[in-house]
Design a binder for these strands. Structure first.
Lengths: 209, 209
DNA sequence: AATAACCGAGCGAACGCTCGGTCGGTCGAA
DNA sequence: TTCGACCGACCGAGCGTTCGCTCGGTTATT
């Protein structure tokens, strides 16, 4: 899984400055996009919220869509960072899986506005860039695939090889559901209840009888 | 569950004409929105694709967002129509549930572009209208809630009362997942495989041991 | 003095929506 | 049967605004 990221051209020479300015831009844009959506956010707003002039903004990007891509990439990297801390947990695949699911849902909750953003705005990216973002989404899914496979091999999980991939998707989606159905779920369940019930439902399916 | 729909003002007097013209508009717009997204579709394009002048279009709606709402309402009514045919199936709750899940996934597959549209563009609606659309989404979820409750009461399903709502959401989301993760799932599973595996996974959780 | 970073007035294109007007059809009086 | 008054569905040029982005100039650093 090679690092599928896309270098965005800049007119600024110092790479460290580019990185720090782009972080400024991302942090400011995320909140704007969350509040108003990508299309209704103007480049002028992005510039102002980033503490830059509109001209300077365009020293660091080539188009408005570039900002969206930077934002998506940033969010994904945050998710992946948190997950990787925990997927390498030693012990049975089953133990590592339980830990990872809980951590993932916690992460979805913590970053809920951002997760929602990716869900809703990925489609606004240019085709080639969108591919990269979906690829990242798949990589995250494959983290769970790896855990399931590990559990299957060490005998701690009861799952057929051809269901591994599907089940990994189920885990990710049922985790993300906490965000994109929050208009209903948050009325009826707390985060703890949700985590507890989804985890036990999921595990029930792949436990030895 | 009162019929939560919103009457959109029009300058045209004949109600039948209004209905048929709006159906024209909806049918044309759906494809445009699917292809380009709501924001990148212009009112002129909508008018042209509907076979109307731009002025005439505005005889039937008040704003571009009205078109999006009409489209969402139409899609939801299609889904609900197909589902209601089958949720009233006599027999145990379990039997009706199995039938409904299969039908729902088939429906998601058949209307996949439209389902995706609702997922991605609901957020572009004005707040009050968005509420109505989410309400409809919840009503569809509650169809499954009803079936689960029925199965719990007649003893054909093994599920705790406080998990009924959550499980209904799981069913809906895992069905819709076939659409909004198609970039990954369609590469690895056919519709039949998907339906079969998800159904059996879901049922396994709520079957008596 | 040279260069890199920053800036914002301004450009051209495109947008949602309006509004004055056209035109085919209906109906009642002659 | 004819004709004039009226109606309402239909139309699209054009308005006012806003957008993404450029480019020539300014400031800060070395």
């Amino acid at each position: 899984m090679q690092n599928g990221s896309k270098p965005i051209p800049t007119r600024v020479l110092d790479p460290q400055l580019v990185e720090s300015r782009r972080l400024q831009i991302v942090k400011a844009s995320v909140d704007l996009f969350v509040a108003k959506g990508f299309h209704k956010t103007t480049t002028r707003e992005i510039a102002k919220a980033s503490g830059l002039g509109i001209g300077t903004l365009y020293e660091y990007i080539q188009s408005k869509e570039d900002v969206l891509y930077l934002v998506c990439a940033y969010i994904h990297s945050e998710v992946e960072k948190r997950l990787r801390e925990v997927t390498s947990h030693e012990g049975t695949g089953r133990d590592a899986l339980i830990l990872s699911i809980k951590r993932f849902i916690a992460c979805v909750d913590e970053l809920q506005d951002y997760m929602l953003l990716i869900y809703q705005e990925t489609k606004s990216l240019p085709a080639d860039t969108m591919k990269l973002v979906l690829q990242k989404e798949e990589e995250i899914t494959m983290l769970f695939e790896g855990l399931l496979e590990r559990g299957r091999e060490d005998g701690s999980l009861n799952i057929t090889p051809q269901s591994v991939k599907l089940f990994a998707h189920n885990i990710v989606v049922l985790g993300q559901m906490w965000t994109f159905r929050r208009w209903a779920l948050h009325r009826h369940y707390t985060l703890e209840q949700y985590t507890e019930r989804q985890t036990s439902l999921l595990l029930q399916e792949i436990s030895r009888v």
